[in-house]
Every structure is written in C-alpha cells, then in structure tokens.
Computed example of a mutant assay.
Amino acid sequence: MVWNLPNILTVLRLLAAPGVAVMFLYFTRPYADWFALILFVSAAVTDWFDGYLARAWKQESKFGAMLDPIADKAMVVIALLVVTGFSGMNPWILLPATVILFREVFVSGLREFLGDTAGTLKVTQLAKWKTTAQMVALAVLFAQGVFEHYFGMHAWGMDEALVSDILNGREEDVLGLNWKYHAMNISWIVGVILLWIAGLLTMMTGWDYFTKARPYLKDN
C-alpha cells in the first residue's frame, strides 16, 4: 500500500461512506441532514481531487486504482439506502435506486468471475459520468431533505388552511414558508430527474461491461 495524498483522500472517502448513515443515528434532524449533506459533498469532491492529484503528481498506484471504485460504490450505495429510507420507499426513488444497486453488484460479480482478465472492464468515460450523475443527484436529494424538514418544522402547529393562505400570499409569510416550500419541491424534482439520468447511465455502462465480458464468459 502506497500512502500518498491521493490514496489518503480515497481512504477518507471510503471511511466517510458509513458516516453519512451514522449521522442520522447520533444527531436529530435537521442537524443530521446538514452533517450528512456536508460529509457526502466533501467526500464526492475528493473523488475528483484524488484522481487529478494522482495523475498530476504521477502517484498512480494499484492500491489507489483498486480502492477508488470501492470508495465510490460505498458512498453511492449507502447514500441511496439513506435517501430511499427517508423517502418512504417512494417508487420514483426506489426504481432507479434498484437499477443502480443491481448494476453495481452485477459488475462487481463479473470482475470477480473474470479474475486476471478483469482488466478488460476498465473504467470508461461514460462510467465516470455515471458516478458524477449519481453523486450530484444524491447531494440534491439530501438538500431536499433539509428543506423538507425546515418547512415541516416551521409549519408545525398550523392548520392546512393557514399554510395554504401563506403559500398563496393571502397571509404574511413571517417564517419564510414560501421559499422553503418551493426549494423543497424544486430540489425533489431536480434530484429525481438526475437520479433517473444516473440510472439510465448506469444501465448503459452495465450493458457495456457485459458486452466486453461476453467472450470470456463463453470460454468458461
């Protein structure tokens, strides 16, 4: 194992993955949402930095190449579990999440089966875009949870008629319910769209890897 800065960033990203879920065990909302969002975004940023620094400083290593996709998968899978759970198993989240999880398990199984020939399944540019789309989508959905909690917290104790009057401008919006409501809805829509785009890219990369692996599967 080579302990240079790029590899240290990768290890930190791997350790941050379970931390996203742990935030909701030890902190109440909205603090858990904020901590999880900050931790996830910080870890996602290191995904770009560790690769860039490794190439710029010529510090690429087998250890880093092995650990980097593992850290990415851990971040995405755990964040998906958290978002899916807090969405109440909403089908708009559950379906693309299922596609993403299935692909990750499937491709990992292919690499395990291929063994020494797994080098044929090198990370492609499309796969990098897939990972970026996944992380951006999940960051937006974490932000949606923050807006949703603040909206619910500030609307607590109000009846539906009063909330409706505030949102429609018939009552003064002292607590800023309007912008929280719209931010909650916009981030939900954007996050879901991005997650479906990520799911589509995930399917495309999974099929690409399967196509590349088929000749070796026939030999076995």
Score class of each variant (00 low, 15 high):
D33L: 06
S42G: 10
A44S: 07
D47I: 00
Y31A: 13
Y31I: 11
W48F: 15
W57M: 06
T46C: 00
Y31K: 11
V45F: 04
Q59R: 14
V45R: 02
L25G: 15
K62T: 15
T28N: 12
A43C: 11
W34H: 10
L37H: 02
Y52L: 14
A36M: 03
A32V: 05
S42A: 10
A21R: 10
L39K: 00
D50W: 00
W57C: 02
F35Q: 11
D33P: 06
F27G: 01
E60C: 11
A36W: 03
P30N: 13
W34T: 04
K62L: 15
A44F: 04
M23H: 06
T46L: 02
D50A: 07
I38C: 07
A54Q: 02
F40H: 01
P30D: 11
G51A: 12
Y26P: 03
L39G: 06
F49R: 04
A36E: 00
S42H: 02
A36I: 00
K58E: 11
Y52F: 13
I38E: 08
V22Q: 04
W57A: 08
A21G: 11
V41C: 11
Y26W: 15
D50M: 09
I38A: 13
I38Q: 08
F24C: 07
Y52K: 13
R55E: 08
F49Q: 04
G51D: 09
D47V: 01
A44E: 03
R29K: 14
W48I: 08
A32F: 01
A21S: 12
G51Y: 09
P30C: 10
F24I: 06
F49P: 01
Y52E: 14
A43S: 09
T46I: 02
K62R: 14
G51M: 11
Y52M: 12
W34N: 06
K62S: 15
F40L: 03
F35A: 14
L25R: 14
G51I: 03
F35K: 13
S42T: 03
Y52C: 08
M23V: 07
L39H: 00
T46M: 00
F49G: 02
R29P: 05
M23W: 08
W57N: 03
R29A: 13
V22R: 08
T46F: 00
F27W: 10
L53D: 06
L39W: 01
V41M: 05
M23R: 00
M23Y: 01
G51R: 09
L37S: 05
A32D: 01
A54H: 00
Y31S: 14
T46G: 03
F49I: 06
S61L: 11
R29Q: 15
A56K: 15
R29V: 13
W57V: 04
A21H: 08
I38D: 07
D33W: 08
F35T: 13
L25T: 14
A54T: 07
L37P: 02
I38R: 08
